[in-house]
């Protein structure tokens, strides 16, 4: 079942068209990385989903219900963490969560229980000072707590780690990973290492349309380039193998860097075995033979170039 369905979403600011017919489906219980360059339309998409912006056309469904601008009924399924969550500096974390709980209509007892549980989850249980004195990382963590207060089916986080230090980033990613299976998380970012670390599905947005979507393994398989890395004992041995007639006959692209050859076989019907057979025929025992998986970074660069 899908938690979020976006169909033919279009939105422009003046003459600049930000979204140009975006289609996207987020399956239940996944951690969905929503990737794109700055200005690709990630924040606009998220703000449309939570009813803060009105699209020019297209539909957005959350848990099967259509999102209607100005009527935020679908928000009962959603928890939203903006890129820079802002709070009332004169409040304490418990007070703020109580305010949020009262707005969502939770009973007082439930608000108290849930607030304590969430403040523990985000590591702010013993922090009883005013939010005005919080660091950026603490605010992000409190932002996650407020977003999870109503036990949402869908948690939307807009670049939650982009301005944090490595420790703050790790804390946020750990929290998001810990709720996997209970809540579907859509998490926009341009930090691909974060996506690789916790997401099981990704969608890449470029110039307002989706250019790539699926599970990370599916995408890596799809963009597999039949590439190999062979490390030889010496640079001369690598050069000799690179220049050999048998290798050239396979139709390969070879790049040498000292004693390492990066070889891409253009013919997809051939497998790495042909290289192993060739090495054996030449009685060369390489120090290392590796199948090169495409990295998310290389894929991203390829699809958004």
């Amino acid at each position: 079942m899908s938690v979020l369905e976006i169909s033919d979403l279009r939105m422009s600011f003046g003459s600049h068209q930000v979204l140009q017919g975006l289609n996207m489906v987020v399956p239940e219980n996944s951690i969905f990385g929503f990737v794109g360059k700055n200005g690709a339309g990630k924040t606009t998409t998220m703000r449309i989903v939570v009813g803060l912006l009105k699209p020019d056309s297209g539909t957005v469904k959350v848990c099967g219900e259509e999102v209607v601008y100005g009527d935020t009924k679908t928000n009962r399924h959603i928890g939203f963490l903006p890129d820079v969550p802002e709070f009332y500096g004169y409040m304490r974390p418990m007070e703020y969560l109580k305010l949020c709980g009262e707005i969502t209509g939770l009973p007082s007892k439930k608000i108290k229980e849930r607030s304590e549980e969430l403040l523990e989850l985000v590591g702010l249980k013993d922090v009883n000072r005013r939010i005005g004195g919080f660091s950026r990382g603490m605010k992000q963590r409190l932002g996650i707590a407020q977003a999870l207060l109503n036990e949402p089916k869908l948690l939307i986080c807009d670049e939650p780690t982009s301005a944090l230090d490595p420790i703050g980033r790790k804390q946020i990613l750990d929290i998001l990973a810990s709720i996997k299976g209970r809540t579907t998380v859509v998490f926009s970012t341009h930090i691909l290492a974060d996506v690789e670390r916790i997401c099981d599905r990704i969608a890449v947005l470029d110039q307002g349309i989706l250019v790539l979507s699926g599970t990370i393994s599916e995408i890596q398989k799809q963009y597999q380039r039949n590439s190999f890395m062979i490390k030889f004992a010496t640079a001369d041995q690598a050069a000799e193998f690179s220049a050999s007639e048998e290798l050239q006959q396979l139709g390969v692209k070879v790049v040498q860097e000292e004693n390492v050859l990066a070889i891409t076989i253009e013919d997809h019907s051939l497998r790495g075995q042909v290289l192993i057979d060739l090495l054996a025929a030449k009685q060369i025992t390489p120090e290392k033979f590796e199948v090169v998986e495409p990295t998310l970074e290389s894929l991203f660069a390829e699809v958004v170039q």
Partner: peptide, 15 residues
Amino acid sequence: SKGTLINLLTKGLSR
């Protein structure tokens, strides 16, 4: 300008 209403409005607070 600060965006303090965003969290509350996305929780369903009526405008």
